[in-house]
Every structure is written in structure tokens, then in C-alpha cells.
Design a protein around this nucleic acid. Structure first.
Lengths: 124, 124
DNA sequence: TTTCATAAATTACGAGTGTAGTTTATGGCA
DNA sequence: TGCCATAAACTACACTCGTAATTTATGAAA
């Protein structure tokens, strides 16, 4: 149950894209590509993520390699469950209906989803 | 884009259940039914919600009636979109797939969803 | 009319967040 | 071998949040 704040999530997102691990300048460059944060800001976020246990910093001093400890899938699970709990009566189906009704899904997405639902049904 | 914090959301949830409006003691009682917060805590949350514009306090002094200004549906939309943006590549279909794969949906829920998808498809 | 219960407002306070500036330590280059 | 760039650590600061305690104002009861 590591909590990741909004700004921290932006950094995590880059780390998730490079599971091999990244060094400070790379993280800074990647994050900077999407926003205007100061280098120090990004370093602060990295440090906080390490302190929280969401990221590990390994390797020699002055040349740390940062890697996510919390996986994207785990975090998705946590965040999605929390949303469902708070706003959709803890019932995932309600969230899905909500989206099915109001999202403009493409034909192929609809087909894909029906396929997944058929599989889920078959596994019962 | 009114932001509603976690604790505030608990209060909003009760207000959403009674759109007619509630007076302080009622809000306190309803919220207290689900948790152990101090009365003052709940009043603080109400005040903050009013200041944020998420709730209106109308009526005579010392007998305010509180009503949600932000609808539950709007807030669901905002929260769900934000989750999708941050963690699912801004693509609702990805969130739905995520749930379709890992949630234990009941047979009837699956049927309901397929039905909704068929309708969405027909409307294209 | 004075008092009391209590609704509303004000104040509190530590932890977390967004957003950096400042200081320190050090590996590599001149 | 001394200096500099810079990685990492430390400090900052206003704002939000969770969680209340305190103060003020007032309608109703005595």
C-alpha cells in the first residue's frame, strides 16, 4: 500500500517504461520531455519515491540506477480498486457499465471486450 | 474541476444519497453511521466542501440545508477519466480490459455488459 | 430576560505535496 | 594533485488534508 502522489506518478511512469533501470540524468530527461519541471524537482520526487519504497536506488554512489519496486500492474490494481470502492459501490461491473455507456469505444475495442467477456464466461 | 479529498468524499457520498438536502445533524448522523469521526471533523469537511463549491449551504442561519452542487455522475466522470489518463494511456478500453480480465464478474454482469456493448455497437 | 444548547466560524497542528534552492561530497579532467 | 561539474542530500515554504479543539453567536426554553 505505497501511496504515490500525482507528481510522483509522472516519474514512476517513466521508470515503468524502462524496467532495466535508469540513472538520474535519464530520468530527468525523460520526465522533462513531458513537462517543464526543474531538475531538482524531479530529483526530489525520485528521492521521495525511494524513501516510500516504491523505487530502489542501487549501484555505486553518484551513479545510482533507479528501478521501480511497485509494478505498474500492482499500482493500477490499487488505484482502480480504490476508485471502484469509493465511487462505484465496490462493484467493478458498475464501473464497466459506466464506461460502456458513455465512452466512445471503437468497433474493434468493442469486439475485443466482447471477446474478453466471452472468455471470462467460458472460465466459469 | 472541483477537487474532493478522500475524507470529503465520504461526506459527499451521504449528500448524494439525499438530494433533497440535509441539515447538519443529519449529515453528522449519517456519516457517523459509517465511521467514528468527531462531529467537528464532519462539520469541517462540510465547510470545506462549501468553500470549494462542491456543496451549497442554503436557508436560514443556524439551520442551513446542505445540497451537493457537484453531481455524483460528474464526479465519477472526473475521477474515472483522471485514472484512465494517468494509468491507462487515456484509453477507457484499456481500463475495461483490465477489469474484464481480472475481476470476477458474475454471469449476469457479463450478460449485462455484453448487452451494453451490443447497444454501443448498434449506435455506430 | 437570562441562560443554555448548539450551529457556525475560527484556529490548530502535524503529515504530505508541489515546487524548488542550497549545501556537500566526489569522480574525472586539466 | 587541485578544481570543477554535478549527483545526492538537505532545507524551504506555501498549500492541502485529516483530524479536531476552541470561540462566537443565537434561537429557544426557563
Amino acid at each position: 500500500m505505497v501511496t504515490i502522489s500525482g507528481a510522483e506518478l509522472v516519474v514512476m511512469t517513466e521508470l515503468w517504461k524502462r524496467p532495466e533501470g535508469l540513472m538520474t540524468p535519464e530520468v530527468v530527461a525523460l520526465v522533462r520531455d513531458g513537462c517543464e519541471w526543474d531538475e531538482n524537482t524531479i530529483k526530489t520526487l525520485l528521492t521521495r519515491l525511494v524513501k516510500k519504497g516504491a523505487v530502489e536506488a542501487s549501484g555505486p554512489k553518484r551513479a545510482y540506477v533507479y528501478r521501480p519496486l511497485v509494478t505498474k500492474d500492482d499500482y493500477r490494481e490499487e488505484a482502480a480498486s480504490s476508485l471502484v470502492r469509493q465511487l462505484f459501490n465496490a462493484d467493478p461491473a458498475q464501473l464497466m457499465c459506466f464506461f460502456a455507456e458513455r465512452s466512445k469505444l471503437s468497433k474493434s475495442e468493442i469486439a475485443q471486450l466482447k471477446d474478453l467477456l466471452n472468455k471470462a464466461e467460458a472460465e466459469k
